[in-house]
């Protein structure tokens, strides 16, 4: 591009559009700073680690331990991720390698619609179907007492919610594997599954990882759907059948009306900052890993 020198006509539009391009950088910085400044009153009183790793959450007595909420977030998100990923990879492999065109034509619009379906609707479905299922049938089978409002219910809802996204991105990635590569392996006598295992999966691994990362980051921040089925009890979760209280739910339930107790406002802003750092940290990690892979494979 460098060979085209900027003509004088271009100076105006360049200067006019530049501020808009800087806006995303500024917004990112301002969000970080605003949350940091707002959580500073508490951070200057107590050390960060004592706030994050303490387990007592009693705002009225000035105890703001965030550990139950961090653990709740991790339990719910990681369980949902472990439930969703195998199923979505198998499904997208079926759709891209085996399924007849008719099946694909049925799947595509369903996936599109459900990837865009609002989370409050998934949450509603969770209250109607998943919570009773977990409380009445699954928990007794595994010898637990549960109201149904539990980590497992939240994870199931969340898993179903991120499935369409992971599947549609993965299918796109899988479809972009060159046909010639597959044909070469087939011509050497590989079965179709061997082609998938040794050629398709190898070639599309970074892309599928990116698809999973997309699902993961959506799962981390999901608020309403989780809030509706997770029970919202600030305890250290013991099993999949116990309730939890993830960070987004904490914010959603308390953020609007936090002004009366000293330090409370700070604690909630710290929770928001923590959530932000966890999500951004995970996406940076995924990005770093992807860059490393793509460099290694040339």
């Amino acid at each position: 591009m460098a060979i085209y020198r900027l003509s004088r006509k271009d100076r105006g539009p360049e200067l006019a559009t530049a501020p808009f391009a800087f806006f995303p950088i500024a917004l990112t910085a301002v969000i970080f700073l605003a949350l940091l400044i707002k959580s500073w009153p508490l951070l200057s009183l107590k050390s960060l680690s004592s706030l994050i790793f303490s387990t007592t959450w009693l705002p009225s007595r000035g105890h703001f331990g965030l550990w139950p909420f961090v653990l709740g977030t991790l339990w719910v998100t990681i369980t949902a991720f472990l439930l969703a990923v195998p199923v979505s990879i198998l499904t997208s492999l079926y759709l891209s390698e085996y399924a007849p065109a008719r099946v694909r034509r049925v799947f595509q619009p369903v996936l599109d619609l459900l990837a865009g379906l609002p989370s409050v609707i998934y949450g509603m479905w969770g209250v109607l179907v998943v919570v009773p299922l977990v409380g009445k049938y699954l928990a007794p089978v595994f010898g637990h007492q549960s109201s149904g409002y539990s980590i497992l219910a939240a994870s199931l809802v969340l898993a179903l919610m991120i499935l369409p996204t992971i599947i549609s991105v993965s299918v796109e990635v899988l479809n972009s594997v060159p046909l010639a590569l597959k044909e070469a392996a087939l011509s050497l006598g590989a079965t179709r599954f061997e082609v998938i295992r040794y050629v398709v999966m190898k070639k599309s691994f970074p892309g599928i990882l990116a698809a999973c990362g997309l699902g993961l980051s959506r799962a981390f921040g999901e608020t309403i759907a989780v809030l509706m089925v997770v029970g919202n009890v600030p305890v250290i979760p013991r099993s999949l059948f116990s309730p939890a209280y993830p960070l987004p739910a904490l914010l959603a339930n308390n953020y609007g009306e936090m002004m009366s107790i000293p330090g409370y406002e700070s604690a909630l802003n710290l929770a928001a900052l923590l959530l932000l750092v966890i999500v951004v940290g995970f996406s940076l990690l995924a990005r770093w890993y992807l860059v490393r892979i793509s460099r290694r494979s040339g």
Partner: peptide, 30 residues
């Protein structure tokens, strides 16, 4: 107006990625 691989373009795209990942409840709080 930016070269594809310039550091500024990378930074802007990166900040868009970060913004993409921010949960909407955090936007709500902000």
């Amino acid at each position: 107006y930016l070269r594809r691989k310039s550091w500024l373009a990378e930074l802007i795209r990166f900040s868009l990625d970060v913004l993409w990942g921010i949960p909407s409840i955090v936007y709500g709080a902000f």
